[in-house]
Each structure stands twice: as structure tokens, then as C-alpha cells.
Amino acid sequence: MTYVVRRFLLLVVTLIFISVITFLVFQILPGDPVRTMLGPDADEAQVETLKQQLGLDQPGHVQYLHLVEGFFQGDMGDSIRFSRPVTGLIMERLPITLSLAVISLIIVILVTIPLGIFSAKREKKWSDFFLSSFTQLGMAVPTFFVGMVLILFIGMSFQFFTTGGYVPWSESITGAIGSLILPALTIALPQIAISFRYVRNAILEQSKLDYVRTARGKGVSEAIVIYKHVLRNSLIPVVTVFGLILAEVIAGTIVVEQVFSLPGIGRLLITAVSYRDFPVVQGIVLYIALVVVVINFIVDILYAVLDPRIRLKS
């Protein structure tokens, strides 16, 4: 229990730390949200009035404290760029980014685990070597280059794939998958490469341990040895890796949303930074940090579930 309390306090401290950093960064950033929106035709009288109406004429720390005050009442403030609540803006985009992350993760898991087992079984054989080299290649390709090549060779040839734009799940399920599968694949590819190596090595290490030899010696079938004993005991490092990957996947969505013109959280963040829309940037940054911290927390809990020897302590 104290563990959970400790973790929760740590979470709060992390979020405060990130919020303050974001605020300080925005204090230094040159540029003004209202002028950036209105452009070079802006009328001075208009700029002044709009700043007053939006509360942007007050000093930075006053605006920030006002925002923090709202936070404790569950209000993340209003976007300057879009004149509407930040919470709503994030919630609208969440399904897109989340679907993208989940689909990529599913792809990673579906590909990695069988491939890792396959490769581990053939240690030091050519197929293992090829797979290893291939995954190194997967890590080396820039994600957006993969995305562009996928658009060029797959997206353009098959009607099924929507390249550029998002079809909501409520409109058409196949349409949504069609618009998300290529970007998800783009995000997944380098992650497959990373996690594949972990899975392979974890399984290799386990399968050299005594109990596995004993099991084999007793004549237990190879499939049962692998799936029942080795895989289960390799899960801890594997879960760690998937935890790490999810953070990478979330980061990956930012670039990939740009390549495939998906209106997700990442695109919103980039727009918000370039328009100096502090409430939105703050909201998204805290949100992402929250998700990553919570995932790490879940990973820790999973450790304990998978291996009762591990106690939840700091």
C-alpha cells in the first residue's frame, strides 16, 4: 500500500515538474499567440482588444497561476488558437492517437513473439542471422521514410487504404482500419526490431537454464517446453520492453500523424507550439506524461503478477 502511495506522490511531483518546465519554456519563447493567428495584416487596435479579451495582457505568472487554479477544479482552460476548452480538443483526438498506438502495439506483439521464438530456436543458424540483420535494418530506417515508401508502394495501389486523412470508427470500421493500418505499421516497424531482440535473447537465456534441460531430458515435448516454461519465464524482460515501447509508440505518433495527415494529439501539439497556444501545450504534455507514468506503473504491477518473488517496493 505504501508503495502505491509512494508511486502516486512521485507521479504528482513529476507532473508538477513538467508543468513548471513547460511554463518556463513558454516564458522564453518569442512570439505572441494573437499576432501569430492574425498574421501580417493584423490591426494594432484589434490585437490589443483581443489580448484583453483573452486575458493575455496580464503578466505570464498571473496567467499561469490562473491556469493552475483551474486545474484543481478540473478545468484545463481554453485554447487560444481554437477558442474552445482544451479538454474537449484532447478528447476529440484521443481516439485517433490511441487507436494508432494500440494497433501498432498489437502488430508489434503479433510479429515479435512468434518471430523471437523462431529465431531463438535456430540460434547460430543462417535464418537467425538473417532475422537479426533484418531487424537491425528495421531500427535503422527513419519512420517517416517508411511511411512515405508505404504510401508510394501500397497506399496508392490499393483503394482500401486511405492515405492522408482519418475515417472515424463510427463512420466505417473498415475505413478506420484502412486509414490507420499503414501509419500503425510505420510506427511498429522499428519497435518490432527492438523488441524482437529482447524476446529472442530472453528466450535464449531461459532455455539454457537447468530446469529447461531437465524438462527436455524428461521427454516433455518441445512445444510445451517453449510455450509453457520458457515463454512464461521470459515474460518479465518482455513486458519491460513493451512498456518502454509504448512510450516510443506515443512519440512515434507525432511524426507519423504528420506524414499521414492524421488529426491526432501529435498534430495538435505541433500546431499548439507553433501558435504559442500555452494551455493546449500544457494540457497535452501533462497528458502524455501521465499516460507514460501510468504505463510504467502497470508494468511494475505486472512484474509482481508474473513473478511472485518480486516485491513491490521502490
Binding site: I18, E248, I288
Partner: peptide, 18 residues
């Protein structure tokens, strides 16, 4: 840990913006 809990590209975007 806090720094690593934060997708790197976002930090890079902010650093470059400054």
C-alpha cells in the same frame, strides 16, 4: 526518470523553439 518519461521529440521541439 521524469525526463525519460517524456517523449524525446516533444522536448526537442520545445528546445528548438526556444
Amino acid at each position: 526518470d521524469a525526463l525519460m518519461a517524456f517523449p524525446g521529440i516533444i522536448l526537442a521541439i520545445m528546445i528548438v523553439a526556444v
